[in-house]
Design a protein around this nucleic acid. Structure first.
Lengths: 190, 190
DNA sequence: AAAGATTAACCAAACATTAGTTTGGCTAAT
DNA sequence: ATTAGCCAAACTAATGTTTGGTTAATCTTT
């Protein structure tokens, strides 16, 4: 009873494509690159996905689902707003740095690079960002603080970790996320 | 005596290519796209640059020169370390958001996307980052603060502004940069 | 200063390769 | 007997690049 074989191939395809999209970029990755990564012929991909655009869209939406669930999971049981921000940032950095990740594609591929699905990608991405925004909304902040800018700063910093993070490096994803949250909370100055 | 015509065309080529590289990405931009942006034929580009790779490299290195000079200019006359950080962040955000920019290419194109010049691009980018690091090194910080992580956070946040900044938006580049610097300095909490 | 030679900057046209995609058929499992 | 899943092979368009020629400006020579 090893069903799911069909689904399993489709998923493997998405994972392999996601890894290539995240590393080399969307348009720098060819269908032949993807095909040879899963050991099948280029044309065979079209049994699973109607086009390269659609493949990317499927990965992107799956990635948004993944990262949203990861975020919810990390927040579970936490009530203190700053603890929630730390956990959320940790989840974000983990999502953009994990090697097997479809989640990396969300921040590596910008909607403008896939004109045909531009709106759909923006909509999917916004769904996550709105969810992330509530973390900042709940913070007790000084009145001079622009929450919108603070959100964009934290999102940008977390996203950017994708570019310099290394598994062999001295930081783990979780510490990075938490550190970013603490930098804006506590008086860093001395 | 309107000399410089030669040089002027080459510069216009770099600017047009830079704009396209920054918006659509390196490999999503074709030589024909670039050529038609400056109203000449694809093959004519090869009189000025030996290859697409070399064109990108020239733009990238010119961009690093630009942003480095912009940074130095912004810091001139400032001695207080926090004032210098604010000015530096403002210069960074301005560099990644200005429309006529070769500087945007630095943060829009990652070295891995141009394998042939990977090391050269990394070296150029590092030259700027090292310069930027001194801003953080000079800050009087609490002992628990990891300066390396703080640097990466600020760089990431500034770089990321490129993705959401809009000229018609409610923020100007300078305020964004300064706001980011203030978020980590002052106790945001209330 | 005029004629000739040279060069910078580009065009016109093509080349080989790679891109995304399509089609028809094969094979193993249902 | 049917169908899900893939192969084999091709097709068209787009890609980076090359080549030889053309034009207008600059420089040299007389």
């Amino acid at each position: 009873m090893k069903a799911q074989r069909a689904n399993s191939r489709g998923e493997r395809l998405m994972d392999a494509a996601a890894a290539l999209f995240a590393e080399r970029g969307y348009s720098a990755t060819s269908m032949r690159d993807i095909a040879s990564a899963v050991e099948m012929l280029p044309g065979s991909i079209y049994y699973h996905f109607a086009s390269k655009d659609d493949l990317l869209l499927a990965i992107y939406e799956a990635g948004v689902t993944d990262i949203t669930e990861a975020l919810e999971g990390a927040l579970m049981g936490l009530h203190d707003p700053w603890a929630r921000l730390e956990a959320g940032m940790a989840a974000l950095v983990e999502a953009v740095t994990q090697p097997q990740a479809r989640t990396r594609v969300i921040f590596a591929v910008t909607p403008d690079q896939v004109p045909r699905h531009r709106e759909a990608l923006i909509a999917a991405r916004d769904a996550f960002e709105v969810r992330f925004s509530t973390l900042i909304d709940d913070l007790p902040l000084a009145p001079w603080v622009d929450r919108q800018l603070l959100k964009l700063m934290l999102l940008g910093a977390g996203n950017h970790a994708q570019l310099w993070y290394s598994e062999s490096g001295s930081y783990r994803a979780e510490e990075i996320g938490k550190a970013f949250a603490r930098f804006v909370r506590a008086p860093v100055e001395h």
